[in-house]
Amino acid sequence: MQTKPIGAAALLIPATGLVLVFMGLPLIYLFRYSLNQYVPGEFIVDGFTLENYRIFFSEAYYLTGMWTTLLMAGAVTILCITLGLPIANWIARQSGTLKTILLMAVILPLFISNAVRAAGWMVAFGQAGVLNYVLLQLGLISEPLQIMQTPIAVFIGMTAVNLPYVVLTLQSIFEGLDENIDFAAASLGAQPLQSFFLVRLPQVVPGILAASMLSFILAMNAYATPVLLGGPSFRMMAPMVVVEIMNKANWPLGAALAFILLATTVAISILAALFIRRRY
């Protein structure tokens, strides 16, 4: 006798309930807030207006913030994939203790909070920081470089945050590749580099897209790194949402920004997923 599959579905009810209560409802609440009117000095003024969305699309301050966010997320993702591919490929080909050590080296940074890691970069990049000290000592520069409080610092910091996720995703995919296919390529005359580009890389394209999506979503919603390394004049979406809600007490606009960020991220993810499904 086989019980109906409803039994298995029933097991999902508690988890689904939790998601609905603690994620779905707040989102609906937030969406409702984004339609409210903003009256300075008053906390909640019920209303039904698209004014907050109009503000986003008409003011350069917000549009630039979104543009910066998209550019940064795209650039970080491209660098993460470029660095992640050879690292993941290399780790996947190791074995034994070396592999364990390498994997630990990738995983351990994830144990440290983003804010703490950003603080580390501040020490490294500051005017009197480690990097400037070394470069000055080597005579490569004559005065300290301004790295902190620039987009470059955010770029490096966020790449460091996302790289472990990308490497782990790609490594598991390289791990699953059939060794005999590499052997076949070699026997047919492909040198190691040719083999990587002509045989290994094409097989992991779906994995590259998955890792890109992961990195892109993480970067789109990054908060600690841009705030700590970018300084006050560098604006990305997540910090801007916080500024609206916490500093300006403008919940309706903050909610609208949050929704726009969410919608953009989801839309890009869905497009990428469709692309993966169509091609592979």
């Binding site: 005999n180 076949a184 047919l188």
Partner: peptide
């Protein structure tokens, strides 16, 4: 890749 030996595997190993 310099041996000029043809190989056939149990699991085909096609690209």
């Amino acid at each position: 890749y310099r041996r000029n030996i043809g190989l056939v595997f149990q699991n085909y190993a096609l690209f």
